[in-house]
Design a protein around this nucleic acid. Structure first.
Length: 380
DNA sequence: GACATTTGACCAGC
DNA sequence: GCTGGTCAAATGTC
């Protein structure tokens, strides 16, 4: 992989110009976002100004995207990529990072995470107004079956308890919470397919039970912070007899742990999972304010890809494994690496779902071990 | 040592 | 008494 070297400005002049332009555009977009955030208190109630600011940001990233796409099209075809989640950890070359305004770095570190959570909250509100909401068991609609789409392109159904019972389980007799919510979650296509995808909260398994007339056992989880914050949230996970590739995940109790100032601040309800999965799976032809730029970029850059999107942040099991997919994906195209990195950076910034801290690590790793950045052909 | 999972035992609703 | 849900000791992992 070619690394931009300020000390040799004439070397690889053309490449540097082109790539530097893409990087500059993305950094400009970041700067515009930073400006917008700082100006929010004053222009937050002025839709026209907000629109202009958002358009500028979108236009900047769209231009970057066009250049990336143009360069990719003129070069060797990049390998097929399943989606942002499965990208190998990407870092900007250290020299590139040094070119980033320190204040911008700091903003990216500290603000983007909060901004993304704000976006999620906003989308949640919109979600709650839309028809794509989960039905509480108490509502008791036996015909409720809402179809979303899983992070890897698979469908995810949200069904009421009664609907689940009528199709997959014997009649329930007792101890079912009136506020229980059931989500049908597809098993990951990669990695540990025995466990349903990460939903943003950390759970501790406290039991497993063979269920009568069911081929698969039911696992019982409670919130990891139950003791610390008296968080009552629980969930039960069971594979469907007639569709082993689908998990029935039943949520009982609301998370209260995120209300604590020291507790995780990512409120993920079942409807958020639904919303996030559907958002990830949207096939985007044009960027829009609601478009996940990273996904959009990566889908375009990953020419010949499967078109499969994925949950950013991925599945992380209790053992600390990261990602449900292949742990590494080799990119044979040296030049392609840099475009993937650009896409990954954008993805980490705008498509990060629940693992925002990891996303920031993507962009600004705590330890900039340059050896890790060695191109494949320079390792060993 | 802290925290997670596993698994047999126990409790309680039906 | 059957069954689902939970407890808690044993065990594993980092």
């Amino acid at each position: 992989m070619f690394i931009f070297n300020k000390n040799q400005p004439n070397k690889h002049k053309h490449t540097v110009t082109m790539e530097d332009s893409v990087y500059s555009l993305i950094l400009k977009g970041c700067k515009l976002s930073q400006d917008l955030q700082s100006n929010l208190p004053t222009i937050g109630n002025q839709p026209n100004l907000l629109l202009i600011a958002c358009d500028d940001i979108i236009r900047t990233f769209a231009t970057a995207r066009e250049r990336i796409n143009g360069q990719v099209g003129a070069q060797a075809q990049l390998p097929s990529l399943p989606g942002p989640l499965f990208y190998p950890p990407m870092m900007f070359p250290e020299q590139q990072l040094q070119n980033i305004d320190p204040s911008l770095q700091e903003w990216l570190r500290s603000s983007v995470t909060q901004a993304m959570e704000d976006v999620i909250q906003t989308q949640l509100l919109a979600d709650q107004r839309s028809s794509f909401t989960i039905r509480d068991h108490a509502e008791g609609s036996s015909s409720t079956r809402l179809r979303g789409s899983g992070g890897d392109g698979q469908a995810m159904d949200v069904v009421s308890d009664s609907a689940v019972r009528s199709t997959t389980s014997p009649p329930l007799r007792h101890r079912r919470s009136e506020n229980a919510r059931t989500v049908m979650v597809p098993a990951p296509r990669f990695g540990n397919v025995e466990i349903p995808p990460e939903d943003g909260y950390t759970w501790r398994k406290y039991g497993q039970k063979e269920i009568l007339n069911s081929k698969y056992p039911r696992s019982y989880y409670r919130c990891t912070h139950q003791k610390l914050y008296q968080c009552p949230a629980k969930k039960q996970v069971q594979r469907l007899d007639n569709d082993p590739s689908t998990f029935e995940v039943r949520y009982n109790g609301e998370h209260t742990c995120h209300m604590s100032s020291t507790a995780p601040s990512i409120p993920v309800s079942a409807s958020e999972i639904t919303q996030e999965m559907s958002r990830q799976a949207i096939t985007m032809q044009q960027p829009s304010p609601t478009t996940s730029l990273g996904t959009w970029l990566s889908m375009e850059v990953g020419a010949g890809g499967s078109g499969r999107s994925s949950m950013v942040g991925g599945y992380s099991g209790g053992s600390g494994n990261a990602g449900a997919g292949p742990s590494t994906i080799r990119c044979d195209s040296k030049d392609g690496d840099q475009y993937l990195q650009v896409a990954n950076m954008a993805d980490a910034m705008f498509n990060s779902g629940s693992s925002s801290s990891n996303s920031m690590e993507f962009i600004f790793p705590a330890s900039m071990d340059q050896e890790k950045w060695q191109p494949e052909d320079k390792k060993d």
